[in-house]
Design a binder for these strands. Sequence first.
DNA 1: CTGAAAGCGCTTACAG
DNA 2: CTGAAAGCGCTTACAG
Lengths: 353, 353
Amino acid sequence: MPAPRARVTQRMIADIAGVSQSTVSLVLNGKADESRRIPAATRDRVLDVIRETTYVANPVARSLAGATNDLIGVFTYEPAFPTRSSDFYTPLLTGIESAAEQVTADLLVFTSTPVVDGRRRLFHESNRLRLADGCILLGREMDADELERLLATDYPFVAIGRRDAAHGRVPYIGVDYASATRELVQRALDLGHTRFGLLRLSLGAESSRDRHDGIVDALAGAGLDAAAALTEATVTDHPTVADAWEAIRASSPTVVLVEDPDDGEELLDLLSAAGVAVPAAVSVVVLGEHTRHRDRGTDVTRLSAPRTELGARAVTALTERIAAVQRGEAPPPVQELLACAIVDGTTLGPPSR
Amino acid sequence: MPAPRARVTQRMIADIAGVSQSTVSLVLNGKADESRRIPAATRDRVLDVIRETTYVANPVARSLAGATNDLIGVFTYEPAFPTRSSDFYTPLLTGIESAAEQVTADLLVFTSTPVVDGRRRLFHESNRLRLADGCILLGREMDADELERLLATDYPFVAIGRRDAAHGRVPYIGVDYASATRELVQRALDLGHTRFGLLRLSLGAESSRDRHDGIVDALAGAGLDAAAALTEATVTDHPTVADAWEAIRASSPTVVLVEDPDDGEELLDLLSAAGVAVPAAVSVVVLGEHTRHRDRGTDVTRLSAPRTELGARAVTALTERIAAVQRGEAPPPVQELLACAIVDGTTLGPPSR
DNA sequence: CTGAAAGCGCTTACAG
DNA sequence: CTGAAAGCGCTTACAG
């Protein structure tokens, strides 16, 4: 059994080529041409040896010596791949992956962080964020304290999704749910709806509040009082979607807005089973979208966030911040909202009667 | 604007705690307790300072100094997330992610590698494999030369999927497609089928050959000559699935085996459109599975590989190999095939007439 | 034009 | 019991 071959180093290349180790480094980093310091003959000789030995620089050493390590961190508060959330994360990761490829960076997915209460903690005993040049944060809700603490650092990061925390100083690329929701509600208003139901997720997330703001805005614009025109039920307060639906049903809404796509499907199934025609008896509008491939026949009227674009834009924004920090500058503020599309479906119609 | 805070280092911790930098390192790595070299009082003082300063060791420096960095590389020959392949890769990544979490490792997804002709190259100018302690290789087909070259290295890796290359020395965790396919064909034989059609993928991949072997085995076991009983068409040789189907149709098979799930769906659509009843007129069996959520009503008789388990097992196998190399030992050979399930569907029935 | 040297932040023998 | 020192493999001023 042959002894494991020692790794090739610049020193070995230098010895073979008959130059100094620094010359090898210079050639390797293209500084040879730039400064025209090294004659083409020497350079070519070194390059030949590099090719013969199939040498590649140890990225760890390069990184320690001060070069960036071209590693983009991805931190997900919830496990990224497991089936339930994969529908949600996959398009984001698609965008992140292709943008990372563009900037020739590798992706570091932080999976080592222990999961506590179903969520990962950003800061913990052996925080490894620094392994990457910067980091993209994914998750519906993020811990305000952790964001604050991260901000106190010079570590470059970008959150995906609008963030209020830390006095509005969190860099993010988000989705303009408020505008899209407002427009969607406006359509319902235009059709004649006046009694709205809302099945919402937990109140904490910014995306939830943005949607809510959009609804209230639209109602106010139509001269309606939200307190009277809108009946809400938070899904987490009820054991099942059926219970949440019962809770708002008493106000006999003519259109129900559902924040979570899964809840939306469940409600549609429920109504269908109960013989309630959609949209003839009641309209259903979903304020989000999963990437399932046409699970059901029903073409739901819904919001569709540009998730792939979101991921890609987060990478470029992060790259800019990393470069700024590298130059010793303060990273530029980044707070962008991408436009959210409305998908015209068949579940929104004029109110009954 | 405050100047970006310099990174905290062990030297700073040492200065504050009034000890040497090596003592900090010793405490940090738990060697303090092990060897009982450092008194509890000193250790606690150091730990206090570490907590106060929220210090974390620079993993790049640790790595260069010889410690493992608990980074598991993931190299995909095709982009991992983009929609078309996401159905295929997602369950694998799910398994990899959760197993990585178990062994508290982070995942390094190699996206920086340039994609040439739709595939990534493992070896190229700035190969960064060494950033990770070891690497999992994903892809339907892998370059034999690259595998050979990687094997010549002491770099730990595990391929997902059986590999013939490099004289059978490639470590892998694969799927026993041969056995499962044999069993599936046996079922068809038991039902009375004697004329088989096969829509296969490119011939290069081991998984394709294993399936083919399984078919031939089963036929031989039933005393049938494959040359007569089996008519094949390679999908890539034909412009469309319809053309491939035309090519084998002449032999009037009573059952068609389709390797690719997408092709299988296309064939079913095609037959349905042509008014050919399945399985009354012809049976269709698919030798694989995608993770779409019940796209269509038809419950296809098919093979279902344990992809999540496959990913998880690859991680543990890789971890073992990394540990062995770390100890200076030759990594143990790993070549495992996981059992593949058969999903009983409604598209396999007795032959017509 | 090129080499010797410092330094990145660690780990780990090796001396006291 | 603890520190000074070498070394991991690079990059990059700094001298010749």
